[in-house]
Computed example of a mutant assay.
Amino acid sequence: MPNITFIDAQGESRTVEGETGSTVMETAVRNGVPGIEAECGGACACATCHVYVDEAWAAKTGHAESMEEDMLDFAFDVRPTSRLSCQIRIKDDLDGLVVRTPLRQG
Rank of each mutant, 00 (worst) to 15 (best):
L72V: 06
E37I: 12
T20I: 15
E65A: 11
T61F: 00
K91M: 14
V53E: 04
H50Q: 07
A43D: 12
C44M: 13
D77A: 15
T23R: 02
E39Q: 13
S82L: 01
S66E: 14
S13I: 04
C46V: 05
E39Y: 13
I7K: 10
V53T: 00
A59E: 15
A58P: 09
R30W: 07
V98G: 07
M25D: 07
E68M: 00
A43R: 12
Y52V: 04
R100E: 03
T61E: 01
L84N: 04
E26F: 03
P80W: 11
D77Y: 10
K91D: 10
N31F: 06
D54S: 04
G106M: 10
G11L: 06
D93T: 15
S13W: 11
E37R: 13
Q87E: 09
M25K: 07
E12W: 09
E19C: 09
E12Q: 13
N31A: 08
A9M: 10
G42H: 08
K60D: 05
D93F: 09
D93C: 02
G35H: 03
G106P: 10
L84I: 08
T23Q: 04
V24R: 09
I7G: 01
A64W: 01
D8T: 10
L84T: 03
G11C: 02
C44G: 01
E68I: 02
N31E: 09
T23S: 14
R83I: 00
H63Q: 15
